[in-house]
Design a protein around this nucleic acid. Structure first.
Lengths: 337, 337
DNA sequence: GTGAAAGCGCTAACAG
DNA sequence: CTGTTAGCGCTTTCAC
């Protein structure tokens, strides 16, 4: 070094002790000239806080994940945290060893171990489905926030309100005069599908309308099944006045099934979707759909985490954020007559 | 601890010295019981290698970014590296301070500083456009690989072949008998658009066909302008037999413009796109388009980086990967007569 | 205002 | 086979 003790350099770097202008300038000059950078590892080791949080995602290629990460990053940046990303890559892993689908507990353990070893101040776990996790993040003595899923045991979570938004959307459609509804759900046993259906049924019940069970079918979340299911729904005498698909991909399937049968949207049959996905961005007429608060989930997850890191907030919270209904022309503006 | 010295524990943990079965078992038992985890920070500090690489992305919400990250992760996992993710969030930043668009150099510096401080073994920079970067990652004495962009100065890069694939695609269309081409490019001055156009022009020149300049227009990369531009191209007497849009979003615009004018695809006009994007996944007829090797770019970037970390590979390489043409029905199967 | 020195948790000689 | 010890780069008392 050039002239002073390591302690002095540390003081200059952190402004943690009064330093004479002369020495400070000298030190700063040397730092600039040598391109010195302090070793965060050593610093964290000494201070016992890393200002690092771990983001453990089930699969980064699932469309909502990057949006949530982006939300986390915005708050993290503002709060002076950095993020270390672990990608479990469940999509490809499940595909390549389908014989033991839920055997990724050990993958989680390994990653959590690694994150804990990196001395992260906390972990945010981002799921690929909105569901309860039977797998658990072993207790590492640091707060954990689950996002787009929730834990069976302890831990906070941030989710969006599947049920409420479908209750609202259904209410809106009822107000427009629609009475004969068809619903295309997701996979059998899917939690978000069940919640959305629950919101739908609640609105219908309050309106005193019976929904025949043959009007509520599953569409496997994908275009092809969505289209086939819509075909079944529409190819009969008293076909529904409106079909509510539980995601946009299936809604696109409904569009194509309707076209095939010579039915016009929204004149002959109205359609709604869910997700506000790219796939339905430019179909015509514009699809009425639901936008999930993805970025906002990231914000809240990170905020909750830092609150818990600093002990200001208790654990085991469950934040549920509202969704937004996106208007469109796939439903009659003037309502159903 | 329970019975032995710290050194012994270290030996057991790393298998770095012969240990009697008895002691090993004892140590392992204690480790299990206490949930002990070795502190990676201290380990890295001591060994001077972190097995950590930094991924610096311009914006994680840009559709290709997560795919590339996923590719990086796959190789990283296999090689025993972990990744720390820095998201520059340029999309929102550029939007919120448009007065000094290219002033994110300091953001980059800050993040690179931080990554270097974390003692990463190398950095992969993932761009949001395929372009030359005037900004530079300051030399941190560690290898840097650029992905989906390339540096003005030193550093390796991994990209995809814009020109070649459009040369091939155009050749294919020529072989099918198409002669009057329309092209909808991207933004004026966009590098990938220029390269794609170059490939197109090369194929046309080799075929000895003149392309009237009024048939080569810009579409701003988006649906709306794509649609308008297609309108201009199609709403004249000798309209093109085929329109090649330089991305799928604009291609969807072409579909809608054609429909509006009462033209059938592919009978009256053929269409090709670029990106193999979600937005064009279920339009009808299926769009002929180009898939970029996103995951593969991640693989190669990570592989190149580790090669450079271990000194096995020289710096300043430029890997260009081929794209894949996705067939479809937006071009006549039997060719143009 | 500044420096000496201890110690964060770990590894790697070196001894024994 | 196992323990002692130095030291990675930093912060932080405690003296001066």
């Amino acid at each position: 070094m050039a002239g002073v003790s390591v302690a002095t350099v540390s003081y200059v770097l952190n402004g943690t002790a009064p330093i004479s202008d002369k020495t400070r300038e000298k030190v700063e000059r040397i730092i600039r000239e040598t391109g010195y950078r302090s070793n965060m590892l050593a610093k964290s080791l000494r201070t016992n806080e890393s200002r690092l949080i771990g983001i453990l995602v089930e699969d980064i290629t699932v469309w909502h994940t990057p949006q949530i990460i982006d939300g986390i990053n915005e708050i993290a940046e503002r709060q002076g945290y950095h993020t270390i990303l672990s990608n479990l890559r469940l999509m490809s892993k499940i595909a390549s060893r389908f014989e033991d689908i839920s055997n990724y507990q050990e993958d989680i353990d390994r990653e959590v171990d690694m994150l804990a070893g990196m001395q992260v101040d906390g972990i945010i776990y981002v799921g690929m489905h909105d569901r309860m996790l039977p797998e658990m993040i072993s207790d590492i003595g640091k707060p954990v926030v689950y996002c787009y899923c929730y834990p069976m045991g302890r831990g906070s979570s941030v989710r969006y309100d599947n049920e409420e938004v479908l209750y609202q959307l259904t209410g809106l459609m009822l107000k427009k005069g629609y009475r004969r509804f068809g619903v295309i759900g997701g996979l059998e046993g899917s939690e978000p599908a069940a919640l959305r259906l629950k919101g739908f049924q609640r609105a219908m019940k309050e309106a005193g309308i019976e929904v025949p069970p043959e009007n509520v079918l599953c569409g496997g979340w994908n275009y092809k099944e969505g289209r086939e299911t819509a075909g079944k729904l529409l190819d009969r005498k008293d076909f529904p006045q409106i079909i509510m698909a539980m995601n946009d991909e299936m809604a696109v399937g409904v569009y194509d099934a309707a076209t095939e049968l010579g039915l016009k949207i929204p004149e002959d049959v109205a359609v709604t979707g869910f997700d506000h996905a790219a796939i339905a961005q430019h179909i015509s007429p514009e699809l009425v759909t639901v936008e999930r608060p993805l970025q906002a989930m990231g914000y809240h997850a990170m905020e909750l985490l830092t609150e818990q890191i600093s002990g200001r907030e208790e654990e085991n919270q469950d934040i549920i954020l509202p969704c937004r209904i996106i208007p469109g022309a796939s439903v009659r503006a003037d309502g159903y007559r």
